[in-house]
Deep mutational scan, measured.
Amino acid sequence: RLYEREDHKGLMMELSEDCPSIQDRFHLSEIRSLHVLEGCWVLYELPNYRGRQYLLRPQEYRRCQDWGAMDAKAGSLRRV
């Protein structure tokens, strides 16, 4: 689950498959919190699986710093 605000607030989007462009699919370029329910995912800073990568394991991420990012920029997401 992807959230537009910290602490799992605001608009929530659910994802169960790879997403090459978060902007195209959800009209957002920033994700401020996440909740990974199962499996491991890689969040990429840019669309089409480019830029900085962040490995996400099943857990709650209340803010972008929790997954190691300096800002909430999110371009794509892929399951590993």
Rank of each mutant, 00 (worst) to 15 (best):
Y54K: 03
Y61G: 01
L46V: 00
E14P: 09
C40W: 12
L34Q: 03
H35Q: 15
P20N: 11
N48H: 14
Y3F: 09
H27I: 03
Q53S: 15
A69Q: 07
D24S: 13
L43T: 04
L77P: 03
L15V: 15
E30I: 06
Q65S: 14
S21M: 01
R52F: 05
R25M: 11
K9G: 10
R5C: 12
I31F: 03
D71Q: 11
K9C: 12
L55F: 13
N48K: 10
Y54I: 07
Y49L: 01
I22D: 01
A69W: 04
S21G: 05
M12P: 14
P47A: 13
E30G: 08
L56C: 02
P20I: 06
L55C: 09
C64S: 08
L37C: 05
Y54E: 00
E14Y: 14
S29F: 08
I22H: 03
D7P: 02
G75R: 01
M13S: 07
S21L: 03
R25A: 12
S33M: 04
D18F: 00
P47Y: 01
W67Q: 04
E14F: 10
E45K: 06
Q65A: 13
E6Q: 07
G39F: 03
C19R: 01
S76I: 15
Y3N: 04
G51T: 06
H27P: 07
R5A: 08
R32C: 10
G51H: 03
Q23W: 14
W67P: 01
R62F: 12
I22M: 05
Q59L: 07
M12V: 12
R57N: 15
I31G: 00
R50M: 12
Q23N: 14
I31N: 01
M12H: 06
H35A: 13
R62L: 13
L37D: 09
Q65N: 11
Y54H: 05
E38N: 15
L28Y: 09
A74M: 02
D71N: 10
R63C: 11
E45P: 02
L11G: 12
L56Y: 01
R5I: 08
L46C: 13
A72M: 00
Q65I: 08
R32N: 11
Y44W: 05
K9Q: 15
R50T: 14
K73N: 14
A74S: 08
L55D: 07
G39L: 01
C19N: 02
E45R: 07
G39H: 11
N48D: 14
C40M: 13
E38P: 04
L15A: 06
L55S: 13
E45H: 05
E60Y: 13
L15N: 05
E45A: 10
A69L: 01
Y44S: 05
L34F: 12
L11E: 14
L77F: 08
E4R: 05
M12Q: 04
C19M: 03
L34T: 02
G51R: 05
M13Q: 10
R62Y: 09
S33W: 00
E14S: 09
Q59T: 09
L56M: 05
R32E: 06
G10R: 01
W67C: 04
M12C: 08
V36W: 03
E14C: 05
G39V: 01
E14M: 13
D18T: 02
P47T: 07
Q65H: 09
D7A: 09
A72Q: 05
R32L: 07
L2S: 02
R63H: 11
C64F: 12
L37N: 07
R57E: 13
Q59C: 13
G51D: 06
M12K: 06
H27T: 08
L34S: 01
P58D: 11
P47Q: 08
E17Y: 06
Y49E: 03
E17N: 06
D71H: 10
K9V: 07
Y3K: 00
K9I: 04
L15C: 12
W67A: 01
L46A: 15
L56I: 06
Q65C: 09
Q59D: 10
L15F: 11
A72F: 06
A74V: 15
Y61L: 01
L55T: 15
A72H: 07
A74Y: 03
E45N: 01
R52L: 10
L43H: 03
Y54T: 04
R57A: 14
Y3S: 04
D18G: 01
D7L: 05
K73W: 08
N48F: 15
R1E: 03
A74E: 05
W67T: 05
S33L: 02
Q23I: 14
L37R: 11
L28M: 14
E30Q: 09
R50Q: 14
S76T: 05
D66C: 06
L28T: 05
E30Y: 11
A69R: 00
A72S: 13
S76L: 02
L43R: 00
L28P: 02
G10K: 02
M12I: 09
P20S: 08
C19P: 01
D24I: 04
Y49M: 00
I31K: 00
S29Q: 12
L37T: 08
D7W: 06
L2R: 01
L56Q: 02
G68E: 02
L56G: 01
Q53Y: 11
D24T: 10
S29H: 13
D71L: 06
I31L: 08
L2Y: 01
R32G: 15
E30N: 12
G68P: 03
D7N: 15
D18P: 04
E14V: 09
R50L: 13
E38R: 10
H27D: 14
M70H: 15
L28S: 09
K73V: 10
G75D: 04
L43Q: 05
K73F: 07
Q59F: 07
L2A: 06
L55R: 14
R62W: 13
Y61H: 01
D7T: 00
D24N: 10
C19Y: 04
K9M: 15
L56S: 00
H35R: 13
K73E: 06
F26A: 05
A72N: 13
